[in-house]
Computed example of a mutant assay.
Amino acid sequence: MSIEPATLETERLVLRPQVVSDAAVFHQLWTERDVRVPPHRQLSSDGRPTVADIAAQIQDASETSKPGLLTVQRKDDAAVLGYCGLVFTGNGAPEEPELAFELLRAVHNRGYATEAGRIVIEWAGRSGYPRLWATVWDWNLASRRVLQKLGFRDTGETHGESVHGRSLLTVLDGERPQ
C-alpha cells in the first residue's frame, strides 16, 4: 500500500506537503519541547538542528515517495501551526503507519490537533490503512486526550522508558469516531 501526498482541508485548516519555508516554525517547535522529551528530540547544546538543518531535511523528504508529515496551516490567515501526518516508524505493526502531530504552544487548546488528526485518519483510511498507531508520553495529558478523542486506545505496551516517563503505544482499529 502507499499513500499519495495530498493537500487536506478541514473547516479551519489546510494540511499540505511541507516546504522549505516551514523550517523556521518547525525549529520553533524544537525550542518549545518539554524538558522531559528525550535528548534526541531536543535542541543540542550547540543549537542543532538549526533552521538550515531542518530545511535540508524537508528538502530531502520531498524527494521520497513516502507521504510523511504534512504542514498544518490555518485557513483564515495562512499561519503555519505545526505538523500532522503519518510516519512509518515500526512502532506498531510493520508496514502500518503511526499518526504524529505537534503544534506550536500558542495554538494549543483550540482543537486544532484533533481536527488535523481526524482528517489525516480519514486520508489514511481512504488509502487502505485501516489500523494506525501512535506513541505518546504518559505525562503528555493533552496529546493523550487528543488521541482518545480520535478513537485511539492504549495497548498496554510501552515503547520506551526514560527517567521522565514511559512512551505508551496506542492503536486505532476499524471504526472511526465522528
Rank of each mutant, 00 (worst) to 15 (best):
Q42V: 03
W139I: 01
D154M: 07
V35W: 07
E122N: 06
D173V: 14
G174L: 05
R118N: 01
L70G: 08
W139N: 07
L172S: 09
G151F: 05
R176N: 06
P97M: 05
L172D: 06
E98S: 11
R36S: 13
L13E: 00
E63F: 08
R166C: 11
I121L: 07
I3D: 05
N140G: 11
A124S: 02
A55Y: 04
P97D: 03
A106W: 02
G125W: 09
A113M: 05
A79T: 03
V37C: 13
K75C: 01
Q73I: 01
M1E: 06
L150I: 02
G160M: 06
P49Y: 02
Q57R: 13
Q73F: 00
A55L: 09
D154Y: 02
G174F: 10
T155E: 01
R16L: 05
R110K: 08
G82D: 05
S44M: 01
Q28S: 12
I54R: 00
E157I: 07
E157A: 15
Q42H: 02
D22Q: 15
A52D: 15
R153E: 08
W133S: 05
G128V: 07
L168V: 10
V37S: 06
R126Q: 15
P177K: 09
S2Q: 14
S143E: 09
T31G: 09
R145F: 11
T158H: 08
C84Q: 09
V120F: 12
A23T: 05
L104R: 11
L99E: 00
V14P: 01
A134V: 08
R41T: 04
A106C: 11
V19D: 07
G117E: 12
A106K: 14
A142Q: 15
S143Q: 13
A55F: 08
D60N: 12
L172T: 05
T89A: 07
G151V: 03
R153H: 15
G82T: 09
T114H: 11
A24N: 07
H40K: 14
G165A: 08
D60C: 09
E63H: 15
A24S: 15
L69F: 03
G174C: 06
G92L: 15
L81W: 04
L29P: 01
A79K: 03
R105K: 03
R166W: 00
I121T: 12
V35N: 08
Y83T: 01
V72H: 02
L150F: 00
L104Q: 10
D53S: 12
L70P: 02
P17S: 03
S143L: 12
T158N: 09
A142C: 08
N91D: 14
K149M: 10
D77P: 04
V14S: 03
G82F: 04
L15M: 07
D46P: 12
Q73C: 10
L141V: 12
I3V: 13
P94Q: 15
Q57E: 11
R36G: 08
Q42C: 06
T71W: 00
Y129M: 00
G151R: 04
W139H: 09
A124K: 13
W133V: 01
P97L: 02
S65L: 11
L43S: 14
I119R: 15
E11L: 05
T155I: 03
S44R: 03
P94M: 13
K66C: 02
A106V: 06
D173Q: 11
T10C: 00
R176V: 14
T155H: 06
